[in-house]
Each structure stands twice: as C-alpha cells, then as structure tokens.
Design a protein around this nucleic acid. Sequence first.
DNA 1: AGAAAAACTTGGAGCGCTCCAATAAATGTT
DNA 2: AACATTTATTGGAGCGCTCCAAGTTTTTCT
Lengths: 361, 361
Amino acid sequence: MPTLDDVAKKAGVSRGTVSNVFNRPDAVRTALRERVEEAARLLGYGGPDPKGRLLKEGKFNAIGFMPPGAYAISDVVRSPYGRELLLGAAQACDAAGATLSLVNGTDETRTASIREALVDGFILGNVIDIELVASAKRRRLPFVILESDAGPEINSIRIDGHCGAIAAARHLLGLGHRRFAILSIRRAAGAPIVHMPGKSGRELMTGFALDHERLAGFRDALAEAGLSIDDMPIIETTPGDPGAGAAVFDNCPDATAIVTMSDWQAITVLDEAVRRGIDVPDQVSVIGFDGTAEAARTIPPLTTVAHDIAGKARMAAEMVLANGAPRQVVLPVELTLRGSTAKPRDALAPGKRQPAKPPRP
Amino acid sequence: MPTLDDVAKKAGVSRGTVSNVFNRPDAVRTALRERVEEAARLLGYGGPDPKGRLLKEGKFNAIGFMPPGAYAISDVVRSPYGRELLLGAAQACDAAGATLSLVNGTDETRTASIREALVDGFILGNVIDIELVASAKRRRLPFVILESDAGPEINSIRIDGHCGAIAAARHLLGLGHRRFAILSIRRAAGAPIVHMPGKSGRELMTGFALDHERLAGFRDALAEAGLSIDDMPIIETTPGDPGAGAAVFDNCPDATAIVTMSDWQAITVLDEAVRRGIDVPDQVSVIGFDGTAEAARTIPPLTTVAHDIAGKARMAAEMVLANGAPRQVVLPVELTLRGSTAKPRDALAPGKRQPAKPPRP
DNA sequence: AGAAAAACTTGGAGCGCTCCAATAAATGTT
DNA sequence: AACATTTATTGGAGCGCTCCAAGTTTTTCT
C-alpha cells in the first residue's frame, strides 16, 4: 500500500503538499497539484488513509452498541426489542452523522471488546455483572447502560419496571385471574429453568438483572390481592426461545394467566398456544412486556406493558454523543390493552384444555 | 487524558514496560508491575488506547455497511428488507468476531464516508451511480455491491431479478390477469411519480437501478402473452412510502393486479386496500418482491418473489472478510405463492370497487 | 525594478502505541 | 568467583497522517 510519503517522494514534493492536494486542493497551485495527482494515480494511491488522521484527531465519530446479556449482534437484529433499540440509536446517529458500530462480544470477550472498541462512547445493553460496568468505566469514554442503575456516576436509562409489573398484575387480577405462571428472563443461552412453587430458591429477585424489579412489582401487586408470588411457578427462559411456550403449558397447566418479561417471550407462548389448540385469551391470558411493534400484530394482539424503546435508545445515543454530566433516567411505561387478556374461564372445562401433566422433576 | 508515556514517567520506567504491564503482564516482575499499576491508577490511566495500536496493526476488525440508495441507517433498520440484510451481515460478523459498522451517509456525504469509514472493507447496498463504485475502488479496500453488477473486477451479489419478474408475471397472467399496475422503485426520497401509458418516457429501464432487470422481466413475460408493458402504468415510489397505495388506486382503478418491486411496497398497498375497503385478492391481486419475513404475516399473506436475503448479506460479509478474488454471484429466486393473488374478478362490479377517477396530470 | 504583500511549500514535531534489537540484571553452573 | 544462561527492561524506529511555524516563490504595487 503506497503512503502519502511515497506519493510525495514520487512527485518530488513534501508530505505536507500531498496532504494539501487531497484535503485542501485549492491551497496548491494547479500545476503542482496535477503533478501530485499524477504521481498518486501512478502509484495507485487512493487518498489519505483515515488511520493516520484518526490518530491525530482522536475521534472515531462512531458510537458502539454492545448487545444486552449474552446476545450476539445477530440476536439483536433478530429480536423485536433489539431492533427497536437499534432503530433509536440509528436515528440519533443519522442526526449526528455518526457511525453506529455493533460491537461483537461473547461472554468471555466482552470486556476485551469494551477495552478495544474503536468508538467514542457506547451504549451497553442491559448489563448482568457489575464487572462490565467497571471495565467500561476504566475505558474513560462516555457510556450509558440500559435497564440497570449503577449509581449517580453512571449514565443509565431504564423503564419503571416495578410500576409496569404492578399495572400488568392489577389488570389481570382485576379480570379475576388468581393462578399465574411467570416467565422470567434467563440471561445465558440454554433451556428453560422451571421453578415450581415451594421448590428451589427464589433468589431470582436479586442481582443486576432487568427483571428483578419487574418480579418485585408482580410480587407487590399479588400481595395486595392477598396472593404470594411464592405460590406461582416461575420459569426462566431466554427471550425468543421457542421452547418457552412448551415449558409453561407443560408445567403450569392450571394457570389462567401467563405473565412475561418481554414481548418476544409472550409471542413464543402465543405460537405454542396455537400449536396446542389453546385459545388465547379464552382459555388463558397472556401479557407481554416492552411494547414492540410485533406485539400489535400477533393474533390476538398482545396486551403489553409498553414503552418507547426506540426513544430510549435515541436518548442513550444522544447522551453518549453529548458526553455531559451523568444522568439517571427512568422512563414511564404504559399498559396497552389488547386482545390477549380477558376474564378467566373455568380453566379445566373438559375437552377444551389439555389434560394436566405432572410437573417435570 | 493520560497516556502510556505519562504512566511510564510517573512510574520511572520506560514506555515499553508499561505496554508490557498491560499486554503481557507476566513478562514484568511483580514488584515493578505493581509499581506501574499504581502509577496508572493514580493517573487514572485505563489501559492502552486502541487508537495507537490500530495505527500499528493497521486493521479495524470491522466491516462497514452502507445503506442502499438514499437511505439513512435508520431506514435500513426500519425496512423489512434492510433488517434481513443486517441480520445476515451480523451473523457473518458474529462468526468472525468482527464489528459491524453502520456507516452513515447522505447523498452528498456518501463518497466522503466511503473515503473515511474506519473499516477493513464494506458492503454497499445497491448502488445508484457508478461514481460510488469508483470511490469505493479508490479506497482500495475489499467491498461488495448488492443488486448491481459492475463487471468482473468488482465483487457483486445480486438476485436473478429478470427471472423472478418473469415468474411473477407468468403467475398472474396464468390466473387470467391482463391489466397490471406496476410499482417501480424510486431511489430518492419523495412523492410517487406516475407514468401513465403513452405518457412520459419509459427510460426507467436503463441505468444502474435494481429494478431495471425486474422491469425487463415483466416486459418480456407480458410480451409472451401478447401484451406490452408500455400499455401499463408504472409508478415510482420509495419503498415504505405510505402514499404508494393511494397513488396506485387513484391512478390505476382498473388494474386487476399490482406488481411491486419490493415487499415493503406491496405491504403499503395492502394497508391502503384495507383503508379503502378493497378486498385483496378478491378485487385486486398484489404481488411482492424479496420474500421478507413480514410478507408471510400480512393479511392476506403476500405472494412474493422470494430469495434468501440474510444469506445474501452473509455471503457479502464473508466475501469482504475473506478479501479474495473478485466474484459475481447471481442468486436464485423462488416464487412463493400465498394468499394475495387470485383469479381476477370483474374489476368494475358495481358497488364493490371505488369509482374510477381520472388519472392525475 | 525593487520592495512589500500574498501565495505556496517545506520539514519537523507530534498523535499513542507496539515491536524489536540491544542492554542490563538476575539466576544458574562449574 | 568467573562465566554462561535466562529473564527483564530500555530506547528508538516506525505506523500514516495533520498541523504549523518558518522559509521560499510568485504576484502586486509603486
């Protein structure tokens, strides 16, 4: 690869002049410029390599987007939620003329990616462990984390999950539901993990997970109605896992309402219901979380706890780009009522519901 | 911002040693390493800035994706076709551990973006003018263009649009349709442009546009049936423009079939049909192009000329990453029959169809 | 024509880091 | 204790470019 220097040598001028020919052409006399251009052409030099300039200028004019949890960047594109996040970030980048870099990172390489990403700042999809935040901080670039709060020093934007969960639960309770199955979010890839009532620990509600808050909201709303979340089965599934529906219907045959932590989970439940001939909402109500565009297009359309996902990501990107004082933003949610929730009907009406199977060990 | 040098000075060691502390920690004796780490901590130095390394190593480990036509990156995320492209590119990047950079560029800044993008190569969404290809070539990085062929020197991947259009047209002709309205693709943003038969030039079939080929396919299939494309209205619209449907129904009230160049166009037509109470496929057949996931979920599901969009983008990304000898790939298409096409019924059955309006000037 | 002003060129000093040959220090051997 | 090995550390040369003060040439003006 020829460099600026090579061209300068060939044209018999200095490096600076060649730089001018490409960057400030009218600061160079025509004859000379043409000579330089000719030399560049001869050498196959296509103009200054941005690498050099970069070092000088110090800015990439790019922000990085690091997928939430254990997701790869293709998972982000595939997921309804991830797509809207991407859309919002892209809008902000469009407006700022910046590049949006989808930064790749598996669980092991994630901190390395943060250390080395060629960006001016980044958006961290919701973070599982505090270590990631620490390494982001070490990088000393602006960043914002989504769906977690890491204190007043760190930019964060999250929704009011507690409130959203309460709204969802009250809605279902108001319809008369008393037996719930809860789909919580499993971060790592893998099969659903079933926690039946009374069984294994309920320490799901701790830690840095985005559904901590939401579960707490359900718990509180349930408590208002004299119910305990400890009596409800909780199943951890990875959003988008097509096995989620099966895990629910197999393990919780008498639940009249299925509450989820993401629309994508709810959508897979809906799919499985169709497969099993279970009518939603006639036999079982399903409620989503997020308010993705897809939720409006399912059959039946999904009742969901909606928020402005793209707006959230747009704000995040703008915060990164602006690089101002740290802020913690909590966005409102809104319960969007659609067709997937209704009053419970006798859950065991003969012939209409598939026979209860014993819960798996 | 402290640099490696500052740390070295503060710790009283050389730059190289500090570099080792961060990159090859066990090549430095413990005591010294700790002294260096302490100095770094004191200075708030968070590790080597990737900019420096970059210059040395010369690789970004990233590929750029430049949106087709006049689209912004948010348009790509928004469009069903763009999303699948993104998905495929993301899959390839996941596999290679590379970053996918969505490179921003308006019409004016596009060549500048190509000149300056901080990537090792790029995918160019379908290109309108040859000038873009020239500037990509000048950059001397591997790149592939989608949906165009720029000769044997340039990587390109496109589908067999001619064949696809013929299949679509034959299908409709076989059903008995004789009066078509054709939606062609308008590249720039803007309102639909209506070309009624006999009116304004038909030079749509020239140039570097992706629908050149497809129009030619329709023309040829129509000719087989003794019809001329010159007798059919052609309307140029930007995919996703919600006005597309109105433009068709207003201007071509007696078409029994609407052929489009993209699913997104077809979907907006479907939406407008619902709005006007026009039954698809009872009153008018609609056919898409691309085979996006969305096309399967419309009501009625869309008959479309499908291809593996994500696979195409994946291949493109792999070609960029591999940086091998130039190839030109033509991918097969497949007519996917669904519910949006059927036999024409008398197009002007009274009371069922909205009265024909005169075409707009 | 000569001086002053304007226009153009140059060369060097970075930008922050990595790599490597050379040097220095520690450890091992007889 | 003298020497050979092994292990640590250093300093300089890039990587490709931009910026700028200083120097040179050309143009303009009297």
